[in-house]
């Protein structure tokens, strides 16, 4: 599904990411962990063609993400608030994203009904612009928008951060459901080892831009990771 070859990114001569090879299979749930500055967001930005790599390439279903935009039609993503058009209401934002993906407003309505629990009555019909929402609610809008198109690949950067505990649990269930029912390929980064080991079947640890662990999630994976990150 996603194939990374020889990918490297440097800022002012400092290498922030260097991944010689990485392959993510269809339907795989891929968890990315690492301390601040490990290169997680950089990696996701490269996958989404938001920054230019110094060398190497990211292939999505065999085509280079730099060269075509076909991948955008089957990739849903939310990295940060820079994705949200903040002067729209959440409904208007969903309508906009649906419209550029050629979905009807009826589709949006049906789709949003699935998120009723996750939104907890704080998003829809509130007559507020996105910029007036709390950080957690903004995050929910962004995550929901990334799912509108029924994507085959989902890229989320720290989706659990700034969500309240109930929402974190709901999001976990939602992601598990997406995997089981629709076999979505998921790329999720997180600082919360608990959540990420629960949702993802493969965990990759980044440190200073390099992959230093690549493990299948098992019983003791959480312990292993905790040991690794303990100083």
């Amino acid at each position: 599904m996603i194939q990374v070859n020889n990918l490297a990114k440097a800022y002012n001569g400092t290498v922030v990411l260097n991944v010689p090879e990485l392959k993510i299979e269809k339907g795989e749930s891929f968890g990315l962990v690492g301390n601040n500055g490990a290169g997680k967001t950089t990696f996701f930005r490269l996958i989404l063609d938001l920054i230019k790599a110094n060398k190497g390439e990211v292939l999505s279903q065999g085509t280079d993400v730099k060269k075509t935009t076909i991948w955008k039609s089957y990739t849903g993503s939310y990295l940060d608030e820079g994705f949200l058009i903040d002067f729209l209401t959440p409904e208007e934002y969903f309508d906009f994203i649906a419209s550029v993906n050629n979905l009807s407003k009826g589709d949006v309505k049906k789709f949003m009904d699935q998120f009723e629990d996750f939104f907890n009555g704080e998003i829809i019909g509130k007559k507020k612009y996105i910029r007036e929402l709390s950080r957690g609610n903004k995050q929910k809008v962004g995550i929901a928008a990334s799912l509108i198109t029924d994507p085959e690949i989902l890229v989320l950067d720290e989706p659990f951060a700034s969500l309240d505990p109930s929402s974190q649990i709901r999001l976990k269930n939602l992601l598990k459901q997406l995997k089981q029912e629709k076999n979505v390929t998921m790329l999720i980064s997180s600082h919360d080892l608990n959540h990420v080991t629960e949702v993802c079947e493969r965990i990759v640890v980044l440190d200073k831009g390099k992959i230093i662990h690549d493990i299948k999630t098992q019983e003791d994976t959480l312990k292993e990771l905790e040991n690794y990150f303990a100083v």
């Binding site: 989404l48 955008k72 993906n101």
Partner: peptide, 13 residues
């Protein structure tokens, strides 16, 4: 500029 990443990442023509 506030939402430029969104413009790039979403399927916008």
């Amino acid at each position: 500029s506030n939402y430029f990443d969104g413009i790039l990442a979403h399927n916008i023509d």
